[in-house]
Design a protein around this nucleic acid. Structure first.
Ligand SMILES: [Zn+2]
Ligand SMILES: [Zn+2]
Ligand SMILES: [Zn+2]
Ligand SMILES: [Zn+2]
Lengths: 175, 175
DNA sequence: TTGGTATTGAAAATCATTCTCAATCTCAGG
DNA sequence: CCTGAGATTGAGAATGATTTTCAATACCAA
């Protein structure tokens, strides 16, 4: 079994370096519980399942940036009794506590991703939906300079680039 | 009477330099008609009024970035028989033909502004709503470089900065 | 003037998101 | 292991922005 990093570990209260626990299936459950407790919420089956679906979508299927609806469908596939509002509410909780990051692309519905150690922005293919993440310190710095110039205290920003990905450039136009 | 620039003139089919007409109240009506015709649409009272309200809001009241609802209210104040859908539809037409630019800020409702000669982005105060426009060629160039790096053809982008404006920094926090 | 279309207003439909509330569940304390 | 105060849940309704539908009406080329 390969050594993996505990989910969300960079966001949980920091522990002694030697205490960092190797993560495997066996204690995924415990890790999720820690996260829910860290949010000051009660542990429920629903929240555990939502967290698992969110984590698996990313780690197993490589699907970052899911919508609330998509996550709800994954959850419902396992337990159809879980309501949409529960998924939605918990996603909002996770976003408030920064365990997930909400990404708003244009006028579409919000997408959610596990929060990364470093801030990043997105480049999206308007034809197939492919999303690339990038980190560009120069752009970030220029943004601060713009805010400074107007005397603003910069608190956040949205930067989304849209274009055609390499494989969509090759294909004939859809319509 | 001061010499003013015809509304939208930089977007209308270019004419002989010597033909550029001085703009005054008298031929505002004609200018608006040109714009509607340039979109391939029929001239109606409603469209003329919407265009006038949009133009006046900006030129007289200095209100850029109005929402569809706000524009509808301005229109309804003059002629309450005009429907919201008409305003909305026409705004969409104007945006398609690039006479206005739709600005989506976060998850809120779209705002519309007369299209400027040069592209710009926005810095918004999250406390009072003040909007500053800026143009930053360095950021624009870096964006292209990012797209190039991933092999994308960049077609558009959204860049919105959020922060606290100078006067809101001075005020005590609202809540 | 007129007829074939485009346009309009009102209302209903969509869509994402949020709220409400009665029923149910969680867990600290006994 | 109980218990009860309070948190959580699911269903559905509410909200808010935007879009569509459709019958009535207006535009304008001929
Ligand atoms: Zn693509
Ligand atoms: Zn991302
Ligand atoms: Zn302000
Ligand atoms: Zn602007």
């Amino acid at each position: 079994m390969s050594k993996t990093i505990p989910p969300f570990s960079h966001l949980l209260p920091r522990q002694n370096e030697s205490e960092i626990i190797k993560f495997d299936e066996r204690n995924q459950t415990d890790d999720f519980k820690k996260i829910i407790r860290a949010m000051g919420l009660k542990i429920t089956e629903q929240r555990m399942l939502i967290l698992r679906c969110l984590h698996d979508a990313e780690v197993q299927s490589g699907e970052r940036h899911v919508t609330a609806q998509e996550l709800f469908e994954k959850v419902a596939a396992v337990d159809s009794s879980v309501g949409f509002a529960t998924v939605y509410r918990f996603l909002r909780n996770l976003a408030e506590k920064k365990f997930v990051t909400e990404v708003r692309m244009g006028g579409q519905s919000s997408r959610y991703e596990l929060t990364t150690q470093h801030h990043h922005d997105h480049l999206t293919c308007t034809s197939c939906g492919k999303i690339c993440e990038f980190e560009n310190p120069k752009i970030e710095k220029l943004q601060s300079q713009v805010a400074d110039h107007f005397g603003f205290i910069l608190t956040s920003h949205i930067l989304e680039l849209y274009g055609l990905c390499p494989s969509c450039q090759a294909k004939p136009p859809v319509k």
